[in-house]
């Protein structure tokens, strides 16, 4: 017990605590323990505990996990906990953590009420505008038609996980003689298309969103038809 007369001792104890708080914690952070897992995911069991100051070389990467080895033992770590050290440069650690995030490309597939399926490939540019390539195709029995479009999509409004996007594009389309897509069935048709659409986007995960797309298309050629469709779209950032 420290009595009232031991103020100097109490101050020394407090100084030691403060020193431990800063320098002790710092020392611990510099020599943390890495829990190496059996596979690239938190669900895999921990197989080894290795000091972060060990000479660890990077063996491979999968998503945001890296496989490391100290020569005799190996396992998987989340790339986010990896610090520069022996066998791994600061540039490499930065690269794995920052540059392997979801890229600028996204790939979508969808199903429409006009019996078509579609694939989209989008490339994000400045100001959240994306260059969008879209392919749609429908076939049922002998009838078939397809369109190929290029356009731009842009954000209209954002509400947390919900987005509202707009799109405008031009393209070409063709239908065989069994299809009445752009004119009465009987002969093959080729058209030029102008289309606009709006997407209601529900961001379900960092890389994945689900979209409800409302679309209108004006065809030039055939009977110059206007068509509308609603689509359900799965979009994955790659």
């Amino acid at each position: 017990m420290l009595g009232p007369g031991n103020t100097a001792s109490r101050l020394l104890l407090q100084a030691a605590l403060i020193t431990t708080l800063f320098f002790g914690t710092s020392a611990y952070a510099a020599d943390a323990v890495y829990h190496l897992r059996k596979g690239p995911g938190a669900a895999f069991p921990v197989v080894y505990d290795i000091s972060s100051s060990s000479d660890l070389s990077l063996q491979s990467a999968q998503g945001s996990w890296v496989r490391v080895s100290d020569g005799t033992r190996e396992g998987w770590l989340p790339a986010s906990v990896l610090q520069p050290g022996k066998g791994r440069s600061a540039a490499l650690v930065w690269f794995i953590n920052e540059a392997s995030e979801p890229g600028l490309w996204s790939l979508s597939l969808g199903l429409s009420t006009d019996d078509s399926y579609e694939f989209n490939l989008a490339y994000a540019m400045a100001n959240e505008v994306a260059l969008d390539g879209r392919m749609r195709r429908a076939s049922s029995g002998l009838a078939e038609w397809q369109t190929y479009e290029i356009g731009a999509s842009f954000p209209l409004q954002r509400f947390s996980r919900l987005h509202w996007l707009g799109y405008a594009g031009v393209g070409v389309g063709s239908a065989n003689g069994y299809s009445d897509r752009w004119q009465e069935a009987g002969e093959s048709t080729s058209v030029t298309t102008l289309s606009v659409s709006t997407d209601f986007v529900w961001q379900l995960a960092q890389r994945f969103d689900l979209r409800l797309r409302l679309r209108a298309e004006q065809a030039f050629g055939g009977d110059d038809k206007v068509s509308t469709a609603t689509s359900l779209i799965w979009n994955l950032a790659i």
Binding site: Q62, S89, A90, W94, A99, S100
Partner: peptide
């Protein structure tokens, strides 16, 4: 020692020869 590069490339391949799945 704050590393602040200004050039980024996607994917790890080609960076210090780490094999990637």
């Amino acid at each position: 020692d704050i590393y602040q590069p200004d050039t980024r490339q996607v994917r790890v391949s080609g960076q210090e020869a780490i094999p990637v799945r």
